[in-house]
Design a protein around this nucleic acid. Structure first.
Length: 469
DNA sequence: TTTTGAGTTGTTCGA
DNA sequence: GTCGAACAACTCAAA
């Protein structure tokens, strides 16, 4: 074959890219293509920060391609039309792309494949959806047995990680549209080079203490690789290899940190598999007996949660970190999600949408899975009566208050003893701390003990209502 | 088919 | 302050 298209979607990397590798093996010349699909712009699940990260990633990739004698072709429009046009323009005989398992991507690819020579390869996950099944051939809905089977399958080793090609021959003179300009988030420079740097940094040392450090809100104890995994600036396979290498290496005192991180990677795959097998979970609760919850859905409460003005410091810190950086600490995601669904009794789908609009790493499968886990409506979800106490969570995971003080500066001078429940400050102390509750910082918008009872009753009722029908 | 053991990340209450 | 039990029974996975 003389020419093939390499259609990029969420695999913005040259290293360990099976679609690129297949294209290079099949054709002498390869045209890297990204299609700016207006359908993605119009989605209420897309936000400007993630879009900026994607566009930055495309610029970085274009630079990496130039260093190898190639260039990225960008076109705007419906993918089926754009690709048909490009096949005609370049004389390409095939399109290679990494399979994406989200419902929209599957429908799109089916539409393209109906008329064009599209070849899909693996790569979004280390084990493709449909390959991790129970003995009777049905999919898992409980994480632990899924993870056991996942680990028992042949796992990639360092030898399987494909090196970046040294040269990519691309015909010249193919017209490309300019990428829109959007200001990006400073904390997460997009691109494969940065992803590799971060992985090396994390896997070299921080991974050893990951099991403990990942829960400390004020520290960089997590890998902070999620935006890169989201857009495939790092392959899932390479991440798995790094986790397994760290587990086997002697540089850590114990394998626990690396093993815990591997588990997180498997959780990511679990949710991709679940959504693949149960696409309806995208729109409704996975658990049928919890679809009848009478959500309170108070608009003012929702607005306060979005703005980080609930009066619960650790909740507000998380929400403000998200708005400011496009990222939120994992522990804070659980706390804010529990607060929205269990304390405010607001439909998890409202929270899911808000997270998707702001997260750089916003991914349908992980985000939906996480929200349904927090709401207790999902696969292997938290029991509905397990309700986070935002004060205790703050005291436990931000004991010295550094996280809260960083993101909620009006609380900077509140004594640590009162930091996670500032409304307990006597009036004189509020003056001294320069923080009058109800003026400088909101009083709690809801009483936790009362809200807990309300939610237990609402969930109990939903379960009862289903049992009767 | 039936049985058995197990299930990410908590909180509250009472001794 | 610390500890264990209750929360609510339920569904899933595998033998």
């Amino acid at each position: 074959m003389r020419v093939a298209l390499w259609w990029l979607r969420r695999d913005l990397r040259l290293r360990d890219n099976q679609a690129l590798s297949a294209a290079l093996a099949a054709a002498e010349h390869v045209v890297p293509v990204f299609v700016l699909d207006p359908a993605l712009w119009r989605s209420p699940y897309v936000g400007e920060q993630r879009l900026a990260f994607l566009l930055g990633g495309l610029r970085a990739l274009d630079a990496d391609l130039h260093a190898r004698g190639s260039a990225l072709t960008v076109r705007q429009g419906d993918p089926a039309e754009v690709l048909a046009q490009l096949l005609a323009e370049t004389g390409a005989e095939a399109i290679f792309a990494e399979a994406d398992h989200s419902p929209y991507a599957r429908a799109r690819d089916a539409r393209v494949a109906a008329t064009l020579p599209l070849h899909l390869t693996a790569g979004v996950t280390a084990h493709a959806p449909g390959t991790v099944l129970k003995r009777d051939g049905t999919p898992y809905v409980i994480y632990t047995p899924f993870s056991r089977t996942w680990r028992a399958l042949p796992l990639p080793s360092a030898r399987d990680v494909l090196p970046a090609p040294e040269r990519i021959l691309t015909p010249e003179g193919i017209a490309s549209e300019p990428l829109p300009e959007l200001p990006g988030a400073a904390l997460f420079p997009p691109g494969e080079v940065e992803a590799q740097r971060r992985l090396a940094d994390f896997a070299q040392a921080r991974i050893c203490n990951y099991a403990n450090a990942r829960n400390v809100l004020a520290e960089d104890g997590t890998s902070q690789l999620s935006p890169y995994l989201r857009f495939g600036m790092l392959s899932a396979r390479q991440a798995v290899v790094a986790a397994r290498e760290a587990r086997a290496a002697t540089r850590c005192e114990s394998a626990r940190g690396a093993d815990t991180w591997l588990n997180e990677l498997i959780w990511r795959e679990f949710y991709i598999h679940v959504l693949h097998h149960f696409p309806n979970a995208r729109r409704e609760s996975f658990r049928e007996n919890l679809r009848a919850i009478a959500w309170a859905n108070d608009m003012e409460d929702f607005a306060a949660w979005q703005a980080g003005r609930t009066g619960y410091p650790v909740v507000d810190a998380g929400m403000r970190q998200l708005a400011a950086t496009g990222w939120m600490h994992n522990r804070a995601r659980m706390i804010t999600a529990s607060f929205l669904t269990k304390d405010l009794l607001i439909d998890w789908r409202w929270g899911e949408r808000h997270f998707m609009q702001h997260l750089l790493d916003g991914d349908l499968a992980s985000n939906n899975g996480g929200w349904q886990w927090a709401a207790g409506t999902g696969t292997d979800a938290v029991p509905y009566f397990r309700i986070f106490n935002p004060v205790l969570q703050g005291e436990k995971f931000d004991p010295d208050g550094r996280y809260v003080r960083r993101w909620v500066p009006e609380l900077a001078d509140v004594p640590t003893k009162h930091l996670h429940q500032p409304w307990t400050m006597p009036e004189a102390m509020q003056h001294e701390a320069g923080c009058i509750i109800g003026e400088d910082y909101p009083a709690p918008i809801v009483d936790h003990a009362w809200a807990r009872e309300r939610t237990l009753a609402a969930y109990r009722q939903a379960r009862g209502a289903t049992a009767q029908t």
